[in-house]
Design a protein around this nucleic acid. Structure first.
Lengths: 135, 135
DNA sequence: TAATTAATGCAACACCGTTGTAATAAATTA
DNA sequence: TAATTTATTACAACGGTGTTGCATTAATTA
């Protein structure tokens, strides 16, 4: 995890390391605005490009929920190296109370079969009240 | 379906009727670009506002898939009157071959339970090859 | 350390969606 | 149906978001 960038064969720069460390400071998914806020010195364009590179290398994945800003979260070890082969065993949960979006692991991931369809990938987004707020 | 607008208690205007008829011409979800293309005379701003009103009244729903333009599809009869209570028994399927996004009904919709979580809503997005292309 | 390759950041731009407002059309009331 | 009220349309203008070209600077390689 410390030499993640070198493993992914991209240059290790202070900016990228700082973005990575911000991701690691949160257990949940975060939007660009959080990254911008946390960066010591931040350049809009460099951040966009960094996010694109991280997405392309499978370092992070994007969570797109209707009506929300895009959120980003660190990928698990076994994620693919690009967005198409990217695969995970978790769902994306949006808490309507605290607003936080998290990746939640499922023991048994639902299977869906549609006659005549070939299903390659499932993305499941749930919303409700998270375990922290639900007390 | 013909007096949909009046049922929803919004004014019936030529523009809105034309947008509605475009939705009815497609069995699948469509992005704004398709609506723009099909409108005889189209005003960008009015279209945005029309879509917003349709969304708010539960006439259409938005399908947001990572990396795609937003798509819109006519809601079923039993959809709620706003986006929050909006509920459906279908998943959103993106065909990687033809690119078309459809709402596909499921006989048995998967249930997901997470310890300590309260799940109000599920949005399921699948991708692969649709029944038309898969032949 | 020198040469090569890649990342950064500035300027400038295009696109997307929104807002204020005047004109116009639809709905309501008498 | 005509007059009034209410809502919609469309123009002008704007702000935000994401992108590209390019010169500078930093990281990697030999």
């Amino acid at each position: 995890m410390n030499n993640l960038l070198k493993n992914k064969k991209i240059s290790e720069t202070p900016f990228r390391l700082e973005v990575l460390s911000i991701f690691n400071n949160y257990k949940n998914a975060i939007p660009l605005s959080v990254i911008e806020k946390d960066l010591k010195s931040y350049n809009r364009i460099t951040l966009y490009r960094t996010i694109k590179v991280f997405l392309g290398k499978g370092i992070i994945h994007e969570i797109t929920i209707s009506g929300e800003d895009s959120n980003y979260a660190i990928c698990e070890e076994d994620c693919g190296t690009n967005t198409h082969t990217h695969n995970h065993n978790h769902i994306h949960f949006k808490c309507n109370n605290c607003g936080i979006i998290t990746c939640v692991e499922l023991e048994k991931y639902p299977k869906i079969s549609l006659p005549n369809y070939k299903i390659n990938q499932l993305e499941i987004q749930a919303s409700g009240v998270c375990s922290t707020c639900n007390q």
